[in-house]
Amino acid sequence: MLRGKAFKFGDNISTDHITPGRLAHLRSNLPELAKHVLEDADPTFASRVKAGDFIVAGNNFGLGSSREHAPLVIKMVGVNAILAKSVARIFFRNAINLGLPVLICNTDNIDDGDELEVDLARGTVNDITRANQLTFGKLPEVMLHILNEGGLIPYIKKYGDFKL
């Protein structure tokens, strides 16, 4: 069971919102880059987010670059999972490959600051603040396996190849 606070974002949050290109000089200094996570979408996010919190977004979260720094710094600041109506495909793969859960569900009724409880195994989100329960779509099996192994590298180490 994961528990934390919702940080609400809108549609089409790009990888440039998450890790702006102008900070590329920090790309080999991830702890420093993480201090700017999502800066161009919400300049206060990095200072407010706490380990265990959730990013809650609308459609097409993570569109743009294939830069893995984007999901990496989100994971580094301790975000438990990303909840979104839809997620851009490269970002989706990258997040799962790094062991960061991405849950596809209707996020319209979750508000910024809501206290959430997520049960990954049962596929439910409990919005404690609003006493509202949601379900999220099951991940494809291959992604679930990768996530369960803690990411793609431990998965490949264990199986040697993709087991579909």
């Binding site: 893995e68 490959n97 793609l152």
Partner: peptide, 10 residues
């Protein structure tokens, strides 16, 4: 198609 670094590593 584009992917991230970890997919590329695999």
């Amino acid at each position: 198609t584009g992917m991230g670094s970890t997919d590329i590593a695999a």
